[in-house]
């Protein structure tokens, strides 16, 4: 076996900006799984998640020059690309149609099951699922479905201030659980 080289973030970024295929391959091998969990958590469909993951890595490759290490970690930047791409996908017309059909079918045959529960065992969803309902809904709508806090206030018919306060409490709790894991 060849010795697997480890790169620190500060080594990775310049090499990626130099378009090193080897380092890009390393990046994929190390982070694709983590991003894939997030993507699957949002799009709830592995086949679709494969397409999104591909799209995400192409974006990472093409936009690496716009990454600024001074504004945060590389992983945070990649995670945001993955989350945004996933949300764009579930917001797309094609996805909405297929989901509407699927939910209809599921509603008919399985009475009440929701699609989201299928991926509850993966990553962040596992923790979010453990939050109390009041908070879970907020994280679900914002993080997994990409609604703004303004929109959530509208959807849930509660004041924006309350959304913000509850959201922060939810994330505080999430953060604690995250660190415990």
């Amino acid at each position: 076996m060849e010795a697997v080289q480890k790169y620190s973030e500060s080594e990775l970024v310049p090499l990626l900006k130099q378009r090193s295929q080897q380092v890009y391959s390393y990046l994929y091998d190390n982070y694709a799984g983590a991003l894939y969990s997030t993507i699957v958590g949002i799009v709830s469909d592995t086949e679709l998640a494969n397409d999104v993951l591909q799209e995400v890595f192409i974006k990472i490759w093409r936009q690496i020059d716009s990454y600024d290490a001074g504004r945060g970690r590389l992983f945070t930047w990649m995670l945001n690309i993955a989350r945004n791409a996933s949300i764009d996908t579930i917001r797309s017309k094609g996805f909405q149609n297929s989901r509407a059909n699927r939910e209809l079918t599921e509603n008919v045959y399985e009475s009440a099951g929701s699609v989201e529960t299928k991926t509850d065992t993966i990553g962040l969803r596992k923790i979010v699922a453990q939050l109390k309902e009041e908070w879970r809904v907020l994280v679900e709508l914002s993080y997994f479905q990409g609604y703004t806090q303004d929109e959530i206030a509208g959807i849930l018919q509660i004041p924006l201030g309350t959304v913000k306060t509850r959201m922060r409490s939810a994330l505080q709790q999430l953060s604690k659980q995250l660190k415990e894991k």
């Binding site: 694709a32 983590a34 894939y36 970690r73 945070t76 962040l124 894991k181």
Partner: peptide, 20 residues
């Protein structure tokens, strides 16, 4: 950021090889 990254890496799901 570091703890989110550590959590995410610990909870990674390997994607199918065809994607790479």
């Amino acid at each position: 950021e570091a703890s989110l990254e550590a959590f995410s890496l610990a909870n990674a799901t390997p994607p199918p090889a065809v994607v790479k």
